[in-house]
Computed example of a mutant assay.
Amino acid sequence: MPHTPEAGSTGYFRKLTFADQTRFRDHLLRLDPGARRARFAMPASDAFLRCYAETSFSLDAVLHGYVIDGHLRAVAELRPCGDIRTAEAAFSVEDICRQAGVGTRLMELTLIAARNRGCHRIYMNCLATNRAMQQLARKFTKDLTFEMGDIVGRIDPRSASPFSHLREQTSDVFGTLGGWIDGSRAMLRGRP
């Protein structure tokens, strides 16, 4: 039975690590067939998603997540494409978090991470029917093209600066704090 956030629950954003592999897998498995197809541009079986989650943290990717009550509900992935200067951004957001600004905040965190890693170009590919992803891309770029049935967005992040590094570090601190608070609440409620 899927976990539904408790009334009054608030989520937090944080960078994901290898220790989050199980949470990431569970998040992907909770995606409905339409969300799976939107994320991977094809139907994605449970076996495929398990394998994807197992390899995701070993590919020099930077993942950020949105967590509610200890459950990962949305993820942004930044994956290098051949060289460090070019990367792909991909997003998966569960139904309960859509239309709430979660994708926008994840994109902001992804762009900061890209800047600080010397990435000069980010691509976002989505199906022509994925209006939510197109709306998200339009918030950050006007460079959207139609290629072989997909919409491709291109974002050219600014160069890293001391301020962008400070923003990433501050986000990491708040993410760690959010995890600590979330864990404390769970202990008080008697849940693991």
Score class of each variant (00 low, 15 high):
S164C: 03
E94L: 11
Y12H: 09
D60M: 10
Y12G: 05
V173K: 15
S159D: 13
L109Y: 06
A7S: 12
Y66A: 01
A137C: 10
S159R: 03
R36W: 09
D182I: 01
T141F: 05
I84V: 15
D32K: 04
P43D: 13
T4F: 10
Y12S: 01
I68H: 08
E147G: 05
Q135F: 01
G175T: 10
F140P: 07
V67A: 09
S56G: 14
V75A: 14
H64I: 04
S171D: 12
G190K: 04
T129I: 06
S45E: 14
K139P: 02
E168V: 02
A137N: 07
P33F: 03
T145A: 15
V67N: 08
S58P: 01
P162E: 06
L16N: 05
R185Y: 11
L78W: 05
E147V: 04
V152Q: 10
A44H: 04
A87T: 09
I181E: 11
T141A: 02
V93H: 03
G190T: 03
K142G: 13
D95I: 06
E94K: 06
E147R: 15
H3S: 10
L111E: 06
C119D: 01
A114V: 06
A19R: 15
R167M: 13
G153Y: 01
S171K: 02
L72C: 08
A90H: 04
F140T: 00
F140Q: 08
D143K: 04
R105P: 00
S164V: 00
I96Q: 12
G65N: 02
A186K: 09
A53V: 11
R167P: 01
D83V: 13
C51G: 14
P162L: 02
S45N: 03
A90V: 01
D32I: 05
V173G: 07
F146W: 15
C97E: 11
F91H: 09
R25Q: 15
E168G: 00
T110K: 01
H165D: 05
G82F: 10
G179P: 09
A38N: 08
A41G: 10
A87F: 06
R14S: 08
P157F: 02
F57Q: 08
C126L: 06
Q21I: 13
G65C: 05
M42F: 09
H165C: 08
R121Q: 15
A128D: 14
F13I: 00
R115V: 04
R131V: 11
K15M: 07
E77G: 06
I68F: 00
H71W: 10
I68D: 04
E147P: 00
C119S: 07
H3P: 09
Q169F: 00
F18M: 11
Y12N: 00
G175P: 05
A113W: 06
E147H: 14
L29H: 12
T4Q: 14
D32T: 07
M42D: 02
Q99N: 11
I96K: 06
P2E: 13
R105F: 02
K15E: 08
Q134H: 03
S164R: 01
I96H: 04
G103H: 03
S159P: 05
L29Y: 10
T104S: 07
L111T: 02
A7H: 12
T170W: 08
K15L: 06
L166I: 02
L31R: 03
V102Y: 02
G118R: 13
P192T: 12
G65H: 02
T4C: 10
P2R: 15
R191S: 13
G149N: 06
L127Y: 05
V75K: 10
